[in-house]
Design a protein around this nucleic acid. Structure first.
Length: 470
RNA sequence: GGCCCGUUCGUCUAUCGGUUAGGACACCAGGUUUUCAACCUGGUAAGAGGGGUUCGACUCCCCUACGGGCUGCCA
């Protein structure tokens, strides 16, 4: 870490709106959010839309939706980088006035030609503009870009909270373009101006920007601005260790919602991926905020492990508050394109959650096990369940139903009755559970038969069992 | 090509010169059980390779290998 910052923490997430919110971007946002929230700081959101060709409002919407689903709330208004282009141009001119930048009249064709031949000859492709030290009197009346006048000798050192001290020889850094020939700013300039103007104290971003940090440092120095604390975090890789791409399956954050992972589980998993706090694996948001620090971030890229994600999600579902869980399930259903629950289904699912949430790792799994609560008569047994409803079993059910009419509808009593009925037929309760499941749920995989009976109630239980026994 | 970063069980990681290298997920075996899930017990499994420095290296330095990133008037 560099000099201690006594200023309040300000972090930001700055995606470019060229597609959905990538899972790696989601984690970057999460880290920034956790760091800000854990330090009583501010978390800002800036859309880097200076590339007009590739930026779309749809992508911005998708990114906002992804962040919202993940539960990452930002402070203040979303900043559009493009809206700040006049300010960026102003800074470029200021650099020009200070002599730390210059006008370059080379055309893109010239530069491309140079790079192609340099590459072919095996030389460095760093471009050295002949206009760097040209007399302004010789400037033609033609389009130009404003380039940073980067120091030629010496080295630039960046101090990174994750990567440590990283040194770049200045001969490796060329005079980057700050203002394009059409007057629009480049990312390299805009990111520095915006981070400065927005008061960003900690830049936590992917380590694909590590090299850029050296270039950006030069802009800070040229303008005499304070350099933020850098924290370049490794990218997330696919299960095979390769760069995460579409062929690995889900890359967009919203896909994870559609697959039925609870947001709290995603946050926990993503936080733990590439960051550690001793041996802690399962933790709440409050704990994550309190514990998260830059020192705990690893330096190697981490691979996505869906098994572990599921395990953590299962724990979060089990720990969730019923009402909140119900809301999230409804949102999942909508995101996955499933029909919404009816009022009756919603009511019964809400009452069934207590016996469902301990046995599901994802929402699809929970919904599957909630089949008994979401269905109405007649309950149609699936193939496996139907096998449990043979003649003998139906006879037992017929024997059972009359006794349920007068039973006290609570677990203890039901247990007593079912055990007695089973015993009277010379079988253990285990043998009786299968036909009960088939009759009550039409499935072989369900919650406890007692829980199902309690959730759907006496009348429905008797009706379903009577149906099954017929 | 040049520059930069990385490398501990299959996976995520702990360790910040001295540990029988720990935990979690996954996996295997056994137990429990009302299906599933859960739970209990036990087990397999790691410092990329090679040089140094040191009384002592996973830990510090160098080289190699492998992986990744940057090298744009993209971000």
């Amino acid at each position: 870490m560099s000099a201690p910052h006594s200023k309040p923490v300000v972090t930001r997430f700055a995606p470019s709106p060229t597609g959905y919110l990538h899972i790696g971007g989601g984690r970057t946002a999460l880290f920034n959010w956790l760091f800000a929230r854990g330090h009583g700081g501010t978390f800002l959101l800036r859309i880097e839309d200076t590339d007009r060709e590739r930026s779309t409002p749809e992508a911005t919407e998708a990114i906002l939706r992804g962040l919202t689903w993940l539960g990452l709330d930002w402070d203040g208004k979303v900043v559009s980088q493009f809206d700040r282009r006049d300010r960026h141009a102003e800074v470029a001119r200021e650099m020009l006035a200070r002599g730390s930048a210059y006008k370059c009249f080379c055309t893109q064709e010239e530069i491309e030609t140079f790079r192609a031949s340099a590459k072919a000859a095996g030389h460095s492709t760093l471009f050295h503009s002949p206009w760097r030290d040209a007399d302004p009197a010789s400037h033609p009346d033609a389009p130009y870009v404003i380039r940073m006048k980067a120091p030629r000798g010496g080295e630039t050192v960046i101090t990174d909270a994750v990567q440590g001290s990283v040194t770049f020889g200045n001969d490796q850094l060329d005079d980057m373009v700050c203002l394009r020939s059409d007057g629009t700013p480049t990312y390299m300039l805009a990111v520095v101006v915006d981070d400065h103007d927005m008061g960003v104290t900690h830049v936590i971003r992917g380590d694909d920007h590590l090299n850029n940090a050296a270039r950006q440092t030069m802009v800070y120095q040229a303008m005499g601005w304070d350099i933020p604390v850098w924290a370049h975090i490794p990218l997330i890789h696919g299960p095979d260790g390769k760069k995460l791409s579409k062929r690995h399956g889900a890359v967009g954050v919203e896909e994870y919602q559609a697959m039925g992972y609870p947001a709290a589980g995603m946050r926990n998993y993503l936080t733990r991926l590439g960051w550690a706090h001793g041996d802690d694996e399962f933790f709440t948001d409050a704990q994550a905020k309190a514990w998260f620090n830059l020192e705990g971030i690893g330096r190697a890229p981490a691979r996505l492990d869906f098994k572990k994600l599921e395990n953590l999600c299962g724990q979060h579902i089990a720990a969730a508050d019923d009402a909140a869980l119900l809301h999230e399930i409804q949102a999942y259903l909508a995101a996955a394109g499933h029909p919404a629950l009816t009022v009756a289904q919603n009511d019964r699912l809400g009452r069934a959650l207590y016996c469902l949430k301990d046995r599901a790792k994802t929402f699809p799994e929970l919904i599957e096990k909630a089949h008994f609560a979401l269905s109405t008569r007649p309950i149609v047994a699936d193939e496996a369940a139907a096998k449990a409803l043979d003649t003998v079993s139906r006879g037992i059910l017929k024997d059972l139903t009359p006794r349920l009419h007068t039973a006290i509808w609570e677990k203890q009593e039901l247990e007593t009755i079912l055990t007695e009925v089973a015993a009277s037929h010379g079988i253990g309760f285990g043998k009786m559970a299968a036909p009960l499941r088939a009759g009550l749920a039409g499935r072989t995989v369900t919650p406890s038969v007692y829980d199902m009976m309690l959730v759907i109630g006496r009348d429905e239980t008797i009706a379903r069992l009577t149906d099954a026994a017929a």
